[in-house]
Amino acid sequence: MTTTLTASKEQSCQTLLASGHTACTGCGEALAAKLVLGAAGSNVIVTDATGCLEVFTTRFPQSSWEVPFIHSLFENSAAVASGIEAALKSLGRQNEAKVIAQGGDGGTADIGLQALSGMLERGHDILYVCYDNEAYMNTGVQRSGLTPFDCMTTTSPYGEFSWGNKHNKKDMPGIAAAHNIPYVATASVSFPKDIENKVKKALSITGPKYLQIHSPCPLGWRSNPQLTITVARLAVQTGLYPIFEMENGKITKVRKVSTPKTPVEEYLKIQGRFAHLFKSPDGNEEIRKIQEIADRNIEKYGLA
């Protein structure tokens, strides 16, 4: 599968995230944030949970944000955004700006889950964007609820008794969808046009929206920074990261996996965090389990 997109509109890649931020070389999250802002336009108010994104964009006294931005704590990005939305409503100015709440995977699926759940429950008109780089990268690669199975992190190391993270990735879009919200979607930085379409569509819908973007982290995934997009694309093609759109609880659109099926090894072998699976023949059994996860995704979301 090749990426088909053209820079038809200059506006589609308008940069509202200024250069000079201190993201690592080849950062997928910086790219994702740039794409989200480019699609959302300048008429937004954004909040962010503590995490890489907040740290590398707001190195005091500098800021990379060209739109109103607020960071409060790790757990309350969704709650702060709820307050902003409620204030806009109270002032009768809700048509003047859209509110976007952001968080990393830890700030969304673990630490900020309660605030996010409250936001979704109360029905605030907010788009919540989760930049999923599959661990707490800012503090030095600790596992989070969205770390995939058998992934090596500093708190789920590989060793004699361990193959890495023993838990499966949390079904965060499913948790968001269980709040009966109008729009839930997943995306990947390897498909920028898709991110743009999803952000625009989400912002046109009133009510709480949830978007999860797969953003490779060359540092934590121990992959070549040059291959950031390739890694993200392989996650989608193998079925390990299902890309779908869910409206009112029903899946309306999916991105099909490549045919013939790409084996998960292709995705795993270019990342140091899965290198231990290839060190001994016993790793084949673990790779088979990861292939099963991909196959389950393909069946569950109808990606074939």
Binding site: G20, T22, P61, S63, S64, E66, S72
Partner: peptide, 18 residues
């Protein structure tokens, strides 16, 4: 008030040295 930074000021930070 919390710490306030002006929009887009990170441009002062030249990251070419990386």
């Amino acid at each position: 008030l919390g710490a306030i930074a002006k929009a887009g000021t990170s441009k002062a930070n030249q990251t070419c040295g990386w």
